[in-house]
Every structure is written in C-alpha cells, then in structure tokens.
Write a protein that binds this DNA or RNA. Structure first.
Length: 460
DNA sequence: TTAGGGTTAG
C-alpha cells in the first residue's frame, strides 16, 4: 500500500516535472525533484529522462550526460528512452560519432533499441550527410523486426530530400498514400519543405493544395515553411503577409517564425522592422536558443554594430548556449564586411580549434573578402587549406581573378570547379570567357566551353 | 522522450 502510494506520488511528480520542463522552468523542476526526495518520493527513470531531455535541449549534450551521471549515482539505470534522448542530443550538436557510440553502448548494455532509437539515429546520419549509413540503419531495423512508424517514413522522406533525391522522395510519398501507410501533417510539411528547398515549387504548391483537401489542418510549421519558401523565391510581400497573419492572429507558438522574418528583413536592408520584431521575439517570453541569438547577432553585424554583436555572443555563452558554425560564419562575414580581415581569420582559427564539422561558409566569406580587396594570392592560399570547397568558393575566386586580369588562372579554377561537380554563377562564367577573349587566349576559351558542355552533359 | 518549420556566404 505504502509502495503503491509512493509510485503514484512519483507519477504525479513526473507530470509536474514534465510541465515545468515544457515551460522552460528548469530550475523549478530541479527544486521539485529535491523536495520530492526529501518527502520520500523517489524519482524514477521517467523523472530523470524528463530532466535529461530538458537539460540536453537547453544546454547541450554535456548537460544531458550530467543528468545521466546523477541518475546512476541515485541507483536508477538508464533505459531506451534515456539513450534515445542522448542520441537526439548528440544529433542536434552534430556529433554523429557520439550518437553512433551511444547506440552501440545501448546494445552492449542489453537495452533493445525501439523504433524511436532507430529513427533518431537515421535522422542523425541523414543530417550529417551519411545517407548510405542511414539506409543501413533502416535495413537493420527491418532485420531486427522493429516495425517502422510514421516517424520512420517521415525521416526517410526528409533524408531523401537532404541527400538530393527529391524525385525518389516524391515517389515514396505517393507510394505511402497508395499503400494506405500513415501520412499525416508532418509528412505534408516534410514534403512541402523538401520540394521548396530542391526548387520544385510547383510540386510544393500542389502538395499544399492537396493538404487543404485532407482532414489535416495546416499548422505553424506549415506556415513557417511556406513563409520561408516565399522569401527564398523572391515573394517577399507574400512571406511578410504570412508572418503578419500569424502574429495578428496570435498563432505564433515558438520563435521559428520570428527568426525567419527577421533574417529576411535584414537581407532586404529593412533594419527598423527587423529591430521591431527582434524586440517582440525577446519579449515573447520564450527562451532564446542559439538560432535566435545567431539571428540577433546577424542583425547587429549587418548594421555594422560589431561590439553589440560580440556582446550578444557573450550573453549567449554565459546563458549556457554554445556558439555554432552559424555564429562563426555570421561573425566572420560581419568582420570581413567591416574590413577586419585579420580578426575574421582569428575567428576561423577558433573554429578550427573547436573542430567544427562544417566551416565551409566561414571560409567562403574570408575567400570572398580577400578577393574583393584584391588579395587574390592570399585567397588561393586559403583555398588550399580548405578541406571542402563548393560553388561559392570558386565563384568568389574566379570573379576575384578576373577582376585583377588573371584570366588564365581564373579559367583553370573554373575548370577545376566543374570537374569537382560544382557549378558557378553565370556572371563568373561570362567574366572568364570575356576576359580570355579580350586577352587573346583562344585556346583557353575552347577549353572552358568544352568543360561547360561536359558539365551540362553530366548534370543529373 | 523522438521525427517536420527558424539562423551564415558568391
């Protein structure tokens, strides 16, 4: 009887913990836990899992591991949910190897992964650019007899889009519908987002119209997705109207729509409105996460207020949030635009020291800045240090070389770029060909044209 | 507890 009462109390405490964590009152949740222990209500694995998820989301994976240590010290063993949550935390921080290690640890501990565990690992592998490994996880899931659920299909659809297989994703979506497999609002949102991002706006609109004919109501995610799509494809007013409809109707459930609209306004140079919505975002009562800080730092950088930008960075880090590759890219770009190339280089060094997986954008900003200030040789030197180069890298360099009249070198890099499967802006191609012609390099013109034809033929 | 939407560069 006494034990049953204690279990019921623990269950009630867990409800309370979940509510506090959902509302972002982590400190209060922690004090409830302390009070409960004092009153003889022992926390169980659910209590710790709830706290672990909240800490992980608010402050990153290390905070999650700290809860894991605490629960072990209290004699409460982790379960599949604990590992799922930690794997999700690792995925959010881009720590793919850590996610894989956690999955292995779970298997070695004798805890059988459920569909959520498989889904989370698949999601992590897709997001970090390892689609083949993600498919292997899916195959392993089937082999172990773990039934796929709606999330599994949604993760696969999202992964197909992210790995550049939009047509396969579309075919899979139609297959799910025909086979009567679960297709819900998340599936529609995933499809609309994936189709928009892969440039298939017509298809995205068709799926959006189809959604209107189903029983599913579009939600804030749908609207944010559509809004982002409008901004991406030059329908600025339509995007802003979508935001205002959400705002005036009181339908903004979190900070995603704010980040989208502020960034779009900054890009348009409409700083006053960007500042107005930044204030609203701060006053909304939701806890700002790193994407929100990045957006605010972006606004300050583009306004040329670098001191304010760095102050925001300190606030962010003092609040327990980690800066990420977005933060660094925004700062490097801001510093470059204000002519502080050396300071930008220093930020890139910090990035290297932090061993960040993706630094290509930050490097590209510096390459571009060096090219624009006619330091093309320094840009070429930097290019050789880069592990990954993309269309942006080569476009900046090719433009930079043309600007200083080094057309032969520009054509060489243009051909390397095409050979590596990248594309360059039409303006860069034109600059190279016009330059080579004016300098009388007829043979190089022929080589460039042939490389461009080959690239078109090989284009998927 | 998990999955879909937000933040950077030519």
């Amino acid at each position: 009887m006494v034990r049953a009462r204690a279990q019921l109390s623990t269950r009630l405490m867990n409800v309370c913990l979940a509510a506090l964590c959902r509302g972002g009152s982590l400190a209060r949740a922690e004090s409830v836990l302390v009070d409960a222990i004092r009153l003889g209500m022992p926390p169980d694995v659910v209590s710790y899992n709830t706290l672990l998820a909240a800490h992980c989301r608010a402050s990153g994976l290390e905070a999650g591991f700290a809860v894991l240590r605490r629960m072990r010290e209290a004699g409460v063993g982790p379960d599949a949910v604990t590992y799922n949550t930690l794997i999700a935390g690792a995925a959010r921080s881009g720590l793919t190897v850590c996610a894989l290690d956690l999955f292995d640890e779970m298997l070695q501990t004798g805890i059988a992964p459920d569909s959520w565990g498989y889904n989370t690992l698949m999601h992590c592998l897709f997001r970090s650019g390892h689609p083949e490994d993600a498919y292997r996880v899916f195959a392993d899931m089937a082999e172990k007899g773990v039934a796929p659920c709606t999330t599994t299909y949604n993760t696969l659809l999202d992964g197909l889009f992210r790995s550049g297989h939009a047509s396969n994703a579309y075919r899979m979506f139609r297959y799910l519908q025909r086979a009567g497999l679960p297709v819900g609002i998340v599936t529609y949102n995933t499809m609309i987002n994936g189709l928009c991002r892969s440039g298939k706006v017509g298809y995205a609109r068709m799926v959006l119209r189809e959604l209107g004919r189903t029983a599913y109501a579009p939600n804030a995610v749908t609207y944010t997705t559509v809004m982002k799509c409008c901004f991406r494809y030059g329908r600025f007013d339509q995007g802003l109207d979508t935001f205002l409809t959400l705002l005036e109707g009181g339908y903004i459930p979190d900070l995603f729509p704010y980040c989208t609209v502020i960034s779009a306004l900054v890009k348009k140079g409409r700083m006053e409105e960007a500042n107005t919505y930044s204030q609203l975002m701060i006053q909304s009562g939701f806890r700002l996460d790193s994407a929100c800080y990045n957006t605010l730092i972006y606004l300050r950088c583009q306004e040329g207020k670098l001191d304010d930008a760095f102050e925001l960075l300190s606030m962010m880090e003092e609040g327990g949030l980690e800066s990420d590759e977005y933060t660094f890219s925004i700062l490097v770009n801001g510093l470059c635009k204000m002519g502080h190339v050396e300071a930008a280089q220093k930020q890139l060094c910090y990035m290297e020291m932090r061993d960040m997986e993706s630094n290509v954008v930050a490097y590209n900003c510096l390459v571009d800045a060096l090219c624009k200030s006619d330091q093309v040789d320094a840009a070429i030197k930097l290019l050789h240090d880069m592990k990954l180069k993309d269309d942006f890298t080569y476009t900046s360099l090719v433009h930079g070389l043309c600007k200083v009249g080094r057309y032969h070198m520009a054509s060489k890099f243009l051909r390397i770029c095409l050979r590596e499967g990248n594309s360059v802006l039409a303006s860069a191609k034109r600059a190279v060909i016009a330059g080579l012609r004016s300098a009388g390099f007829k043979n190089d013109v022929r080589k460039v044209r042939s490389a461009l034809r080959m690239a078109r033929l090989l284009k998927p």
